[in-house]
Design a protein around this nucleic acid. Structure first.
Lengths: 179, 218
DNA sequence: AGATTACTTTGCAAAGC
DNA sequence: GCTTTAAAAAGTAATCT
């Protein structure tokens, strides 16, 4: 199983002059008519951080919680070394974790769609079955190959629990076939 | 068609105003799609439920009506695709699909899984295919569902490929392009499903012989 | 007929229309 | 509701060689 993307929100509780950031960093993207956030890309960790004039930020693309935190801190350091006084350390919160995994066998998708409550399977619209799990509160996109995408978790632990729980449900109902 | 429902509505309630506009749009779409009165009534029922649950607030009536009609077609297993409804409504397929998923989620609609077999006769009549070819295609699809090779694939793509294979096996000369157009999928999709069905159903020899015969005739 | 690129779905925050 | 960002799954589609 691997974590593919982590979304984190952050705030330095202090306004930031985005025009100044644009002047100091020629590589950033900022089109206020289109979107109020400035896009600040980092090579490592490879991420994209949206910076708003309120001092709030959104970091996406990290491969782990720690990488997301490291990325936000790096962005703040870069702003400081370029001459922008950012007094506070950023308050960082993980908002969403996207992971992919494989159950190791094929899934009987049509049968699973009948058995799993609150699931949607519409192959005309998307090849995966969409399963909304209550606890942990996550959404899993399940494919016939046994591979899946889990999203909506705020802790890495929730991803493991959700995937194990789904695997258990599928096993109990004879919806898996190995080899 | 829904005149009776409309006349039953009282002018003063805004809910009735909404319903009248909605049902007028529903009638227009239903006529263009040539669906039965039963479908229209089911769609109207779904839309009323959506209104009661407040799902119409802040959303376009047209999108929800189109989605209700699609839901009714799906519920009664009448083959109409999102693409069909997008064409007659002038709305984007993506928007109708989003409204449809909202309806299914919020109203807890239990939808039957889309069955490619139900689309066979509609595609066949558009492409002008024989009854024999249709029966062959249905049998191929039945075998395909038993071994679960249809999982995750577009039902229309499966149906179109099954019809194409049936044409080859029954020596009915129809091109992939003609069947692709009738089904609303691309030739590439038919080719991909063709490969999958051929391999999974062990049709290699039968198709090789039939294809050779086809080349000779041409 | 491939190969490539792009789009479908899911989750989430940010500020403003 | 929309706008932007990121990433995976597997399917379909458009375009180019």
């Amino acid at each position: 199983m691997s974590i593919e993307n982590v979304v984190a929100s952050a705030s330095v509780d202090q306004p930031i002059d985005l025009s100044q950031v644009t002047r100091l960093f020629p590589g950033v993207e900022y089109h206020p008519e289109q979107f109020p956030g400035l896009v600040f890309r980092l090579k490592n960790p490879k991420t994209a951080t949206l910076i708003f004039s309120s001092g709030k930020m959104v970091c996406t693309g990290a491969k782990s919680e720690s990488h997301a935190i490291k990325a936000v801190k790096t962005v703040v350091e870069k702003l400081r070394s370029a001459g922008i006084d950012v007094r506070n350390e950023p308050r960082i919160e993980i908002q969403n974790i996207v992971a992919s995994a494989s159950l190791g066998g094929r899934v009987k998708l049509e049968e699973a769609a009948v058995v799993l409550p609150r699931s949607m399977y519409e192959p005309e619209q998307f090849p995966g079955l969409i399963f909304r799990m209550d606890e942990p509160k996550t959404v899993i996109l399940l494919f016939a190959s046994g591979k899946l995408v889990c999203t909506g978790a705020k802790k890495e632990e929730e991803v493991y629990k959700a995937v194990e729980k789904l695997h258990g449900i599928l096993e109990e109902n004879g919806l898996m076939s190995y080899e | 068609r829904l005149r009776t429902w409309n006349s039953r509505s009282q002018v003063h309630e805004p809910v009735d105003r909404n319903l009248r506009q909605a049902f007028n749009e529903l009638d227009t779409l239903a006529d263009k799609l040539s669906v039965s009165q039963t479908i229209v009534e089911r769609a109207a029922y779904v839309y009323r439920k959506a209104l009661e649950k407040g799902l119409v607030r802040g959303r376009s009536i047209s999108g929800l009506i189109a989605a209700s009609l699609y839901a009714a077609c799906r519920a009664l297993e009448t083959p109409r695709t999102l693409k069909d409804i997008a064409e007659v409504s002038g709305l984007k397929k993506k928007d109708i699909a989003r409204c449809y998923r909202l309806l299914v989620r919020e109203l807890d609609l239990r939808m039957p899984i889309a069955d490619p077999v139900k689309s066979i006769s509609r595609i066949a009549s558009k492409a002008g295919l024989s009854e024999r070819v249709q029966r062959r295609a249905v049998e191929l699809l039945r075998r395909a569902s038993e071994i679960r090779i249809s999982a995750g694939k577009d039902p229309m793509g499966m149906a179109a490929a099954a019809l194409y294979i049936a044409c080859v096996l029954e020596n009915e000369n129809k091109t992939q392009k003609e069947i692709a157009e009738a089904a609303g999928v691309t030739e590439v999709t038919i080719r991909n499903r063709y490969k999958g069905l051929k391999a999974a159903l062990g049709l290699d020899e039968a198709l090789a012989v039939a294809e050779a015969k086809r080349m000779k005739a041409k």
